[in-house]
């Protein structure tokens, strides 16, 4: 697929799908004139209406750049993209009135109170708190008791709820959330994802980015991104199902030594730490759990526990990213 073909594709998406937004052939980084035989340079994807779409990848992968292009804050070097049927370059004004955007950093006025922040953002989007209160009610009522408190004095979770309320106050049809859960504690993160589900049920399309693989399963579809390229796009379940290697988790009393010992075994493909176990892919089909266990015990490992496991999105990310190195 070349950039030109993907432009053709963009027409197809455009007319055939009622997709809320289709971003095609975006070149994210680097010099536009640089010779790029690598076709992965362009990002092609489309998001359906009412979908929670996750852009998942590490810092520096290009998530924020992608979001800024789609919210018309940046011009793409090449390629085209549409949001809600409008071109991000030509119709940027129309897009600006219908999307909600929550940038990566906490971008509210720290010296204004909760209520004042909401009022300011309502008015710049030509609306009032009263007009769309029903939309944000579920989220805002968590922080309403503190509405006279200055935003700078809120906890991470509450700031995030306020930012979401501000992004929602003008009834956007597409919501762009750039790393909304970074720096937020696990309880607030969970609450946040529950809110997103609720918004989805109201028909709002949500594009959300995160560096945390464990949040992938909460999206309808995800695009794994690294170095400005998509590794894969699919539903989280399909991505996991596509993982075609045998995956074991191994645990022993000396985890640090275990890494080296496992890597020295010919039947082990890759081995990496994964929380309190190590994950290995098995390349030798004859290798059984018992033989590996014996091998490790010979190397002085005690309490060896080996079990066959299902891959997680994180395993898939590792697997997909590895060939590139």
């Amino acid at each position: 697929m070349s950039v030109i073909e993907s432009k053709n594709l963009s027409k197809n998406y455009f007319s055939a799908k009622s997709g809320k937004f289709a971003g095609i052939g975006l070149r994210l980084s680097g010099d536009p004139k640089s010779p790029s035989g690598d076709l992965g340079d362009g990002l092609c994807f489309e998001v359906d209406k009412g979908e929670i779409y996750g852009i998942i990848g590490p810092d520096g992968a290009g998530k924020t750049t992608l979001f800024r292009i789609l919210t018309t804050l940046l011009l793409p070097d090449s390629g085209t993209a549409t949001v809600d049927g409008f071109d991000v370059v030509k119709d940027f004004k129309k897009i600006r009135s219908r999307v909600g955007y929550m940038p990566g950093r906490f971008s509210l006025y720290q010296d204004l109170t909760v209520e004042e922040n909401l009022k300011v953002f309502a008015s710049i989007f030509n609306t009032t708190i009263e007009e769309n209160y029903h939309l944000i009610k579920d989220i805002y009522q968590h922080i309403e008791p503190f509405k006279t408190r200055r935003a700078g004095a809120l906890s991470g979770g509450m700031k995030q709820k306020l930012a979401l309320s501000c992004a929602l106050i003008h009834k956007p049809s597409v919501l762009f959330l750039d790393e909304p859960t970074t720096g937020v504690d696990p309880v607030s993160r969970k609450e946040f994802w529950e809110m997103l589900k609720k918004l989805k049920s109201e028909g709002i399309t949500i594009l959300v980015s995160t560096p945390y693989m464990d949040e992938a399963s909460l999206c309808d579809r995800i695009a794994l991104i690294q170095n400005g390229e998509f590794l894969t796009i699919d539903s989280p379940q399909n991505i996991v199902n596509k993982f075609n290697k045998i995956l074991w988790s191994v645990h022993s009393n000396n985890m640090s030594k275990l890494l080296n010992d496992l890597r020295s075994h010919a039947g082990v493909g890759v081995c990496y730490a994964f929380g309190d176990t190590h994950h290995i892919t098995v390349v030798d089909e004859k290798l059984t759990i018992n033989t590996l266990s014996d091998f490790l015990q010979e190397k002085d490992h005690k309490d060896v526990v080996i079990s066959k496991i299902e891959a997680t999105v994180e395993d898939c990310f590792m697997e997909l990213a590895i060939p590139k190195n």
């Binding site: 590490p58 810092d59 790393e179 720096g183 640090s256 890494l259 990496y272 730490a273 994180e314 990213a321």
Partner: peptide
């Protein structure tokens, strides 16, 4: 925060060492 899964593991291996 926010590093890619592979880099993160290399980091933890440093910690183990």
């Amino acid at each position: 925060g926010g590093v890619d899964p592979a880099a993160r593991r290399q980091f933890w291996e440093l910690i183990y060492q």
